[in-house]
Simulated assay, not measured.
Amino acid sequence: MNARRDIRHRVLKVGTIEFGGGAIDCTIRNLSPSGAALQVENQTGIPDQFTLVMPAEGLHMPCHVAWRRAYRLGVAFD
């Protein structure tokens, strides 16, 4: 059973995970109005809550981590 509220669309966008004065680059792999899947080089230091910045769209989305796997994490927008 799929627990997602919205259908996610495959994308390949540049993003930044921003938190407490720190920032980590990421790739947004899929996206919906309620969340996204992110790919990172390393999850070390990424907190459970942060702001996902999408510079091309001029968006700053507060979010929280829903799941973590190897180099990917799923987030839900707050």
Score class of each variant (00 low, 15 high):
1 M>C: 06
1 M>Q: 08
2 N>W: 03
4 R>Q: 10
4 R>M: 05
8 R>G: 04
8 R>Y: 01
8 R>K: 09
8 R>L: 03
8 R>H: 02
9 H>S: 02
10 R>A: 14
11 V>C: 01
11 V>Q: 01
12 L>A: 05
12 L>I: 02
14 V>C: 00
16 T>V: 15
17 I>S: 07
17 I>G: 08
17 I>F: 10
20 G>P: 04
21 G>W: 13
22 G>H: 14
24 I>Y: 14
24 I>D: 03
24 I>H: 13
25 D>F: 04
25 D>H: 04
27 T>W: 09
27 T>Q: 15
28 I>D: 06
29 R>C: 12
32 S>A: 09
32 S>L: 13
32 S>C: 07
33 P>E: 10
33 P>C: 01
34 S>F: 00
34 S>T: 14
35 G>H: 04
35 G>I: 07
37 A>G: 11
40 V>C: 08
41 E>P: 04
42 N>I: 00
42 N>Y: 02
43 Q>G: 09
45 G>T: 06
47 P>Y: 02
47 P>S: 08
50 F>I: 09
50 F>A: 04
50 F>H: 09
50 F>S: 08
51 T>Y: 15
51 T>I: 15
52 L>P: 07
56 A>F: 11
57 E>R: 06
57 E>N: 03
59 L>V: 11
59 L>R: 08
60 H>P: 00
61 M>K: 15
62 P>N: 10
62 P>T: 11
62 P>K: 07
64 H>S: 12
64 H>T: 06
64 H>R: 15
65 V>P: 04
66 A>C: 05
67 W>F: 15
67 W>M: 04
68 R>H: 11
68 R>Y: 09
69 R>Y: 08
71 Y>T: 04
71 Y>R: 10
71 Y>G: 12
71 Y>K: 15
72 R>D: 02
72 R>G: 01
73 L>W: 05
73 L>G: 03
74 G>V: 03
74 G>H: 05
74 G>C: 06
74 G>E: 10
75 V>N: 03
76 A>C: 07
76 A>R: 12
78 D>S: 13
